[in-house]
Nucleic acid binder design. Structure first.
Lengths: 341, 341
DNA sequence: CTGTTAGCGCCTTCAA
DNA sequence: TTGAAGGCGCTAACAG
């Protein structure tokens, strides 16, 4: 007879009774503790199996104080940056025995506060706050009862721990790569200058140019994180400065627009003009013609690191580090800067 | 003196002591029950506020049997389809007082089983299983102790409840739109025929064509869900059948490739050729030149619906529905099929 | 080795 | 209107 109705989950008590032992003994047996006779343990395990016993982590958490649970508080799930970070964190935790509460605040402070309360009431062991840009964001506050790590968007409170990609170095590396490819007449098309990301990448690029005894051709153009802007800016650029031999773009979307216009105008990439993107959004980078060289922020690694910090804080052995940490990026080279052999 | 170290969360007992009432009274006062004197209630609330008391949902769940928690079991977080579904579900739940456990099985059955155990041990009130394609997937099994809803990828067990977009109707609507735009020499470039999505969309398209007394120009070409394939197929198509006046593509990526090649070959879109995509991935659709008409699967709505089914099951009032439900799609019209005025 | 007992934090009867 | 007591499922001392 197959029971199709959802059944009540078996409890440790049920197991104990079936195995004809006390509740405590059943607990010990199932938790693999030494002070249980082997035969007894077998009986208990058999009973547990027969009953499809699933230990109640909720009850367990009540006693231990640990729930084996962390909160992931994002400000915009849709954002392209959330996902890899979230994956990295989920990955690092999933390896162990921790589950992740996902909360999307939709960029709304009130909703965020609401979710924070909910997470605390569920007694999460830690919280990761994920932003969708690298501008500092308001801190959740000090002395919360659990460790908090800010990922991508740093907290505005230096007492908090924040992990964010190193956009300045990213800009540097981009220019260094272009220079290494023999380019010297380089232009820049960036994203919205209201974003720290746009400014930091530009800053790094300018530092690297100066170090190489160069400077940008024309004024760096910052406006919008869009393909459309990439197209418009490239058209202007090639019109005013036909001599440029490389464009460093502030995002892959912008770069994609640049590629399209360069092609329309009959310029060969990378022979005439090298084009670099930023973010290494493979979906765009690998679908481009030619494929796009881009700077990767290692977001999955960043998510993993954030999870690791939570672990560390839980172990409590180490002093919880503070401040904003800038994590390394890496340049992924493809056909838009180096011709295929 | 500011305490910077994480502090122990206050318990109901602390509140009761501070308010000089019994634990039971404090509980009643905080839960807004009637049988508490107004002055007493005020004292309790004040004490709770002073202590920043956050009720322990874990302990509460122990007694009530409900944890106010559901599991979201995805097979591939990266997948483009997860996110809107996940958002819809998170949205629907967030409106109430339910939090979501996110688990990414990485497409691995073993890991999925592992996560399932974890979710059950945490006594989630329900589970949503999200797939990244519309092919039937193995059921988690019958008579689990909680309600389960399959989203996007249906379960292979008809006794389960599955919500999946109606790709056949989507294909129909696409063709109907093209026909309404006055096109009659229509070709199809689809994705990987190993996917039900590719076959279903084609099937719907053929039905609609037949209904209009038409048939595809050339043989429908199915191969890969990529821009590259869109480019290659379009080049072949325009070479063999220069007379075609519309291309229905199985995805926005394919359509994007088609647009690019049409432009390269000097064809005007939409004047000479109308191009339709599928999925309404705004990132691609709105960045195209011209912007791309596409079929939207209403995934966020689908996620919301899945959440709603969990709610219904929890209320327990209604009989849990079963079987595969095909949810409606909608065509989003943009410049690639209808010229801007 | 095994079982008894006391909580973990909260809610819910049931008396007082 | 209040408070004492029991229990949710489990673990961690202690005794036996």
């Amino acid at each position: 007879m197959i029971d199709e109705s959802p059944k009540r989950a078996a409890t440790l008590n049920d197991v104990a009774e079936r195995a004809r032992v006390s509740l405590a003994t059943a607990s010990k047996a199932l938790n693999g503790r030494a002070d249980v006779a082997e035969r007894t343990r077998e009986r208990v395990l058999a009973a547990a199996a027969a009953l499809e016993f699933t230990p109640n982590a909720v009850a367990r958490g009540l006693t231990s104080g640990r729930t084996g649970t962390v909160g992931l508080l994002t400000s915009d799930l849709e954002g392209r940056f959330m996902i890899p970070i979230l994956m990295g964190a989920e990955d690092a935790f999933g390896a162990g025995k921790i589950d992740v509460f996902l909360c999307d605040a939709r960029g709304d402070a009130v909703r965020e506060q609401h979710h924070l309360r909910a997470l605390l009431s569920r007694r999460v062991d830690g919280i990761i706050v994920v932003g969708d840009n690298t501008d500092p964001r308001p801190s959740l506050g000090r002395n919360l009862p659990v460790p908090v790590v800010y990922a991508y968007a740093p907290s505005d409170d230096p007492k908090d721990l924040s992990l964010t990609p190193d956009n300045v170095t990213g800009g540097q590396e981009a220019i260094e790569h272009l220079v290494a490819c023999g380019r010297s007449r380089i232009a820049h098309i960036g994203g919205d200058p209201a974003y720290a990301a746009a400014r930091d990448r530009l800053k790094g690029a300018q530092q690297a140019l100066a170090a190489a005894g160069l400077s940008f051709v024309g004024t760096p153009m910052l406006s919008e994180w869009s393909e459309r802007w990439g197209r418009a800016a490239t058209a202007m650029l090639l019109d005013r400065h036909p001599e440029i031999d490389a464009i460093f773009c502030g995002s892959d979307q912008i770069a994609r627009g640049a590629l399209d216009v360069a092609r329309d105008l009959g310029r060969d990439v990378p022979a005439d003009i090298a084009v670099m993107g930023y973010d290494n959004w493979t979906l765009l980078a690998e679908a481009s013609r030619p494929e796009l060289t881009s700077v990767d922020a290692n977001l999955q690694e960043l998510g993993r690191a954030a999870a690791q910090r939570i672990f560390d804080a839980l172990d409590g052995t180490q002093q919880q580090p503070r401040g904003v940490h800038h994590l390394p990026v890496r340049t992924v080279i493809r056909g838009s800067t180096v011709p295929r052999r």
